[in-house]
Design a protein around this nucleic acid. Structure first.
Lengths: 82, 82
DNA sequence: GTGTGACTCGAAGTCCGTA
DNA sequence: GTACGGACTTCGAGTCACA
């Protein structure tokens, strides 16, 4: 599995766990909304700088968003009700 | 601390721990020799694809190469209090 | 609220060299 | 074996209108 797919899944999972829309996340990370959409669809191999900014806003470590086959791990790391 | 600096330090540490030269690492990861040098000097923000390929060759998880020291993590977490 | 194609622009990444 | 420079080419970064 491509690393960008891993990132895409972890990003979407972390975003939804936080209860944020792509719009809201884009706003807080100062990144374009459609670019967030592209990342979640595995269009690009994001740079580590973008990964770090998104991770910071989502309240996780940048490394968390690159972990393979641990969908549950990201979710459980972010303790958020609904 | 910039994420690329974190990556640069972790990359060099992991490479030396493996006893590999920049040349050898570049060859095995199929990445330009001078680019590895640039990454270890924090010149660029590598894409996650490059991070993943290097991590694979070094026998570690891609996420391992982006881990900040505990002190740095605490600092950045406190700074971005919403 | 999200997906997508088309676009521009600059950084990522390669390839040549020298010290 | 590594740092560093110049001159490339590729692709991520960022924006827009429209579905």
């Amino acid at each position: 599995m491509e690393i960008r797919e891993v990132f895409a899944r972890n990003l979407r999972a972390a975003r939804q766990a936080k209860g944020l829309s792509q719009e809201e996340l884009a706003h807080r990370a100062d990144i374009d909304r459609t670019y967030i959409s592209s990342l979640e669809r595995s269009i690009y191999n994001a740079s580590i700088e973008v990964v770090d900014r998104l991770a910071t806003v989502l309240g996780v470590e940048a490394s968390e968003l690159l972990k393979r086959s641990q969908d549950e791990h990201v979710k459980s790391t972010i303790e958020l009700d609904e």
